[in-house]
Amino acid sequence: MKTLKLMVAAFSAVFGMSASAASNQEIISHISYNVISATYVEFAHATVSLKQAVDIFVQNPNESTLAQAQAAWRGARMPWESSEAFLFGPVDSLGIDPMLDTWPLNKQDLDSVLAINTPITTDMIRGLGTNLQGFHTIEYLLFGDGIRTNSRPLSQFTQRHFEYLQAAAQLEMEYAVALANSWTTNYNPEDATTPGYSAIFAQPGANNPFYTSDAAVMEELVNGMIAIADEVANAKIAEPMGADISSANVGLIESPFSWNSLNDYTFNIRSIYSVYTGTYRTSKGPGIKAMVERHNPQLAQQIEQHILACMQLIQAIRPAGGGDMGQAIFTVDGRQRATQAIQALNQLQAVLETQVLPLVDKQ
């Protein structure tokens, strides 16, 4: 218990603690502009960096440029996974989520495309299924199959690997930039007169096309946190584990090729932390915690600590000898640590459902 408290303290120092009394409108405005929009803008910039790193690697393939491209993939993964507590608005209505991040990857069909002579372009990939583009296609091409190692040997790269990598990275960047633009500038690409979704989200009211009240926005935010807590616990972690070691399935793990799965899950819970505390990077302001504080300051603080503990418990799943989720689920102690994380996440989900969501109607 002492060790866990120290870990929580460390996370608190990194992400910051913020809890100040604020109105619902102040909470909504801050989260809209300084958490959600800021996350998507960072994500767009990160995909530009990924495209640039992929281009450099293709132009001069060596161990160093490959490592830089892999690092850029992980760098883009962080803000994307840190957005999953707010998978509403344009990311949903424009169908951007599946184009960016469908998994599992259809590896068999991808290998088939790589084996034929059809020209590889962004438009060609755009026309394929969502499980032949996006993050996990790029991941497989950069990192390999992830079975014994999380880095593809240079000798395995072909000209078509390079072409697919560049086209897929270009497409990923286009989707990410469109998503950022939808929040900052214009949420409906078919109507140039519409504002950025951040303005819509931040100004609920009778004339708002999506949110007629503060309560509607607050409910959207709390339900977003509930949904990702449930998904991480009961899909992303639990499903690959199976009922026992003999039924564990690496194919159900997100980001299995790069061994980045546990970071993905941690960033997912960080998205809860960002919405709850109003903290993203250096930006600090009121989050959902401020609403909880008006009713129960002690509960508000306990929930923040619980979120941080969940993040730490996810990281603790990692095998001591190295590896990631794909290795942990095949060991008894790794599965025990994963079960502890699942239990904590389910407790967090229950608290959000039973003690936070009802407060939305008490404003």
Rank of each mutant, 00 (worst) to 15 (best):
A341L: 02
S182H: 09
L359H: 03
A22L: 10
N249K: 07
N263Q: 15
V91Y: 14
Q340V: 08
I228T: 05
F135K: 11
A206N: 05
T3W: 10
G242T: 11
D264F: 09
D333H: 08
I138E: 09
D55A: 12
A46V: 04
W183G: 00
F201C: 11
L66Q: 15
T118E: 05
G251E: 13
F157I: 11
L105H: 06
I200L: 15
V113E: 12
L94K: 08
N131M: 05
Q133W: 00
A290K: 01
T212M: 08
S32K: 05
D109C: 00
T39E: 02
F135E: 06
R77G: 06
D214A: 01
L352Q: 07
A168E: 03
G242C: 12
M17P: 00
I116F: 01
D324N: 14
T121G: 10
V232E: 05
A316S: 11
A9T: 08
L114N: 06
L359N: 07
N346F: 07
V8M: 06
A176T: 01
M78D: 13
R160N: 08
N188D: 15
A72G: 09
A19R: 14
G205M: 04
S213E: 04
T277A: 01
L179T: 08
A76P: 06
F267G: 00
F267A: 15
V91W: 11
Q327L: 12
V41L: 14
M17S: 11
S83H: 10
L110E: 01
Q68H: 05
